[in-house]
Measured scan of single mutants.
Amino acid sequence: SHFELRVGTITLHFDNISEELAEELEKLAKNGVHADEIRRWWEEWLK
């Protein structure tokens, strides 16, 4: 499923992401983690 995450002024787009993972990314964003860090985390997870 597709997921969009708003982090400050940036909107990150994720394809084929589980609800659980989407929730984890939302938690990171709410805790003030920068969009670049979240994207890096996601790319690492995909490997």
Rank of each mutant, 00 (worst) to 15 (best):
L5V: 14
T9F: 08
A22S: 07
F3P: 02
A22R: 14
G32D: 06
R39W: 15
E19T: 14
I17K: 00
K27P: 00
L12W: 01
L21N: 06
L12K: 00
V7F: 05
E37Y: 08
L5Q: 02
E26R: 13
R40N: 12
L21H: 06
A35D: 03
E26S: 14
K47V: 13
A29I: 04
I17A: 04
I10R: 02
K30R: 09
E24S: 11
G32A: 09
K47F: 06
I10E: 14
N31W: 06
S18R: 04
E26L: 15
R40S: 10
T11Y: 05
L21Q: 11
E23T: 13
T9Y: 04
E43G: 05
L46A: 10
E23P: 02
A29W: 04
H13L: 08
I38P: 01
K27V: 09
L46T: 09
D15I: 08
L25V: 05
K47Y: 08
I10P: 00
E20T: 12
I17W: 03
N16S: 07
T11Q: 03
D15G: 08
G8E: 03
R39V: 15
K27D: 10
E24R: 13
H2E: 08
R40P: 01
G32K: 04
F14A: 01
D36I: 09
W45R: 09
E24L: 11
A35W: 07
E37G: 11
E23M: 14
I10A: 05
E37S: 08
K30W: 05
E24W: 13
D15T: 09
E43H: 12
L28C: 06
E44H: 11
H2R: 05
H34D: 12
A22I: 14
A35S: 07
A29T: 06
N16R: 02
E4A: 00
E24G: 06
G32I: 08
R39G: 08
G8T: 06
H13C: 08
E44F: 05
E23H: 15
R6Y: 04
L5H: 00
T11H: 05
E23F: 12
K30M: 13
E37W: 07
E24P: 01
R39K: 11
E20D: 12
T9I: 09
L25S: 00
I17Y: 02
E23N: 13
L46H: 09
F3W: 13
I38E: 01
R6H: 15
H2V: 02
W41Q: 10
S18N: 09
D36W: 02
W41P: 00
E23I: 15
E24Y: 14
E20K: 12
E4L: 03
W45G: 04
L25W: 02
F3V: 06
H13V: 13
E24Q: 13
K47P: 05
R39Q: 12
T9R: 04
W45E: 06
H2I: 06
G32P: 04
G8K: 01
W42K: 01
K27Q: 13
N31R: 14
R6S: 15
D36E: 11
T9P: 11
E43L: 10
K30S: 14
D36G: 08
E44V: 07
N16F: 08
A35E: 07
A22Y: 11
T11R: 02
E20S: 11
K30T: 09
T9D: 15
V7T: 03
E44T: 07
E23G: 14
W45Q: 10
S18T: 14
V7H: 01
E44C: 03
F14V: 02
E24N: 08
H2S: 07
H2A: 04
R6I: 15
E4P: 02
F14N: 00
R6W: 04
N16H: 06
H2K: 04
S18D: 07
E20G: 11
V33E: 10
I38R: 01
N16T: 05
D36M: 06
W45T: 09
H13G: 04
L21R: 04
K27F: 09
G8H: 02
E19V: 14
E24M: 12
I10H: 05
T11D: 03
W42D: 00
R39H: 09
E23K: 14
G8D: 07
H34K: 13
A22N: 02
V7N: 01
R39M: 15
W42P: 01
R40T: 09
I17M: 05
D15W: 13
V33R: 12
L28A: 07
L25Y: 02
E26K: 13
I38W: 06
S1Q: 14
R39E: 12
K47S: 12
H2P: 02
R40H: 12
E20C: 07
T11M: 06
W42F: 15
E37T: 10
L28V: 04
L46C: 08
R39Y: 13
L12D: 00
S18F: 04
E20R: 07
L12C: 01
H34T: 15
L21I: 14
S18H: 05
N31Q: 14
F3K: 03
E44L: 07
L12P: 00
D15V: 08
A22W: 10
N31L: 12
A22D: 01
H34A: 12
K27M: 12
L46S: 09
R40G: 08
H34G: 15
A22P: 01
S1C: 13
L46E: 10
L5M: 07
H2L: 01
W45C: 06
D15P: 07
I38N: 01
T11L: 07
W42H: 10
R6K: 15
T11W: 04
W42T: 05
H2Y: 07
A22K: 15
K27E: 12
L28Y: 05
D36L: 09
L21G: 05
D36V: 09
T9E: 15
L46F: 10
F3R: 02
D15N: 08
H34V: 11
F14E: 00
E24I: 12
S1M: 15
N31S: 12
H2W: 10
D36A: 11
W42R: 02
A35M: 05
T11A: 03
L28R: 05
K27Y: 11
A35V: 14
S1E: 15
K47Q: 14
E37V: 11
S18M: 03
L46V: 13
E19R: 11
I17Q: 00
A29P: 02
A29S: 06
G32R: 04
G32Y: 04
L21W: 05
R6N: 15
L28K: 07
L46Y: 09
W42Q: 03
E19Q: 14
E23W: 13
K27A: 13
K30P: 03
K47R: 12
W41V: 14
E4F: 02
E4N: 01
G8M: 02
A22H: 04
I17P: 03
H13S: 06
E43T: 08
